[in-house]
Simulated scan of single mutants.
Amino acid sequence: MTTTAPPVQKAIRWILVLQVGVAILMFSTDLLGRLPSILSPSKAPTFDRPTAPGDQTRRYAPRRITTGPDTSPLPRRLVFDREGDVLTLTGAIEQGDAARFDEELNRVGTIETIRLMSPGGSVLDALDIGRRLRDERLSTEMTADGVCLSACPYILAAGTERRVHISASVGVHQHYFGESTVLPAFTAVEDIQRGQGEVMRYLDEMGVDPLVMQHALVTPPDEIYILTPNELETYGLATEIGDR
């Protein structure tokens, strides 16, 4: 005698099969997205090699970027440190850091300058931090050997004055927008185009030439294009380049 599974059990079984299928599809999609960099990793020089005009593309591995005489790795999310009227933002920009930045500004009171040391991270959080920074009419700065890469230059762009030490590194490249999900290709392209459009509008609002994005759009995510001092001034990302 053959027994038939109750409808509820069948439904649960199909839900489990569907969940496993979706998990496999998400893993495969993520793997395929990373496959080009796995099979053909960047052959650009490492980030610690000095750049020169025409030789400005470097390998980008944010967790390997270090700072200070002891070459300590940068924090994996923003750390805030106030010294006088300067608030230093150090580390990667993670989702939720814009809200944390708002809370920090409300807590510390009067600040005049935001100092940056970041390998980048969440573009949307960087834009939100930049907008709050501009609303407060704050300046931005980078000190000797500082780094501001990937999404970080959008925070730099928001300063009413933007001071960059000549030995600091400001770099741009292609970004991912949104979360890793199983989406049709055309939807993913729409997300990227929408994100790039928002970035360009933002730069224009901040008084920075959106043409700086021409370097970002041709530089893959596993590489970074380091802007020269002349480019920083030409595009308006820096209002002052100095050696102290």
Rank of each mutant, 00 (worst) to 15 (best):
R76A: 15
F27W: 11
T140L: 11
M213V: 04
A92N: 14
S167P: 03
P220H: 03
D30H: 14
G159D: 02
L232W: 00
G207M: 06
I166N: 09
T3P: 05
D191N: 13
H215M: 08
F80R: 00
D125P: 06
Q193I: 11
Y202I: 12
L124F: 01
D102I: 06
A99F: 01
S72G: 07
V108R: 08
E231Q: 14
Y225D: 05
R59P: 08
P229V: 00
L18H: 01
G109N: 12
M1L: 08
V218T: 12
T110H: 15
V218Y: 07
L156C: 07
V86P: 07
A158F: 03
A61F: 05
G96L: 11
L203S: 01
L227V: 00
D81E: 11
G195S: 03
V8K: 02
F186I: 12
K10H: 02
D222W: 00
R244F: 08
A5K: 11
M200L: 10
P45Q: 07
L183I: 10
P75K: 04
A61N: 15
Q95C: 12
L18M: 12
R201I: 10
E136T: 12
R163K: 14
Q174E: 14
E190D: 11
A23Q: 10
R162V: 10
M206T: 04
D125N: 11
V79L: 13
G91F: 05
I224H: 02
A151C: 09
P119G: 15
L211F: 09
V147N: 06
L31K: 07
P119R: 12
I192N: 09
R59E: 15
H173C: 04
I224T: 11
I12R: 04
I15S: 06
I65Q: 01
P229D: 01
T29H: 14
E233N: 03
R64A: 15
L211T: 10
D97A: 08
D125I: 00
T160D: 13
K43M: 10
T2N: 05
A158C: 10
C152A: 13
Q9L: 09
A216V: 01
D102W: 09
E179S: 15
S180E: 15
S122Q: 14
R137Y: 13
T228N: 05
E205I: 11
L138R: 09
V164Q: 02
G207E: 03
S150P: 06
G195M: 02
I15L: 08
T4R: 07
V212T: 00
Q214G: 06
G120P: 10
R163D: 12
D81I: 13
F101Y: 12
G109V: 10
E190F: 02
I129V: 14
R100H: 02
M117V: 11
R63T: 15
G91H: 01
R77L: 13
I166H: 08
A185R: 13
T219R: 03
L74A: 09
L217C: 03
T66G: 04
Q196C: 05
R82L: 14
T113A: 08
G195W: 08
E94Q: 15
I129L: 12
R58T: 12
R58V: 15
I38H: 02
P73L: 04
C152G: 09
G96Y: 00
G96A: 09
R134E: 05
T67Y: 10
V22L: 14
R162Y: 08
D55S: 04
K10M: 07
H173W: 06
G120I: 13
P53E: 05
I114E: 03
T51W: 04
V123L: 12
A238L: 02
R162Q: 06
E198P: 01
Y235A: 04
I93N: 04
